[in-house]
Amino acid sequence: MQRGFQLEAKTGEPLISFGLLEEALNLARANSLWPITFGLACCAIEMMAAGASRFDLDRFGAGVFRPSPRQSDLMIVAGTISKKMAPPIVRLWDQMPAPKWVIAMGNCAISGGPFYYPNQYAIVPGADLIIPVDVYVPGCPPRPEGLIEGILVLEEKITQRGRLRKFRDVK
């Protein structure tokens, strides 16, 4: 993927690249990903655990769960998306200011998970059918370490460099 404005990078090639300014902005964005307070099912419990004392998402600057979509940068789709819930998710996504990112957390948000079978009528099989997903975190539900790893991968995607590799290699 090309360097440059991430929103454009999602849809196509960046028109103008501002070099150093863009890199500084991306570095700041990657280090303060404020998620929206928003959970759909049991994966949200693991998301809360990731934010709480033992795992502490705030270490990476991503622990400020904002209640309003207007002030958040990251949507963690944590759980099963029922057809009833899909329009509110799209609406919340539209209300968030650019630049913004999505993490699909858990098998349900990736592909419908155990609730997707022939003739089912209630589940949207995958968050990527309704909003553009950046990082997929598999698991049913994924452990908090999985979500933190997903956020670190998203940070690398935003800055285009392996900034946090030294923390990830710690055994």
Partner: peptide, 10 residues
Amino acid sequence: ADAIKLMGKE
């Protein structure tokens, strides 16, 4: 970092 990010937001 938070301040720079907020400046760059829509």
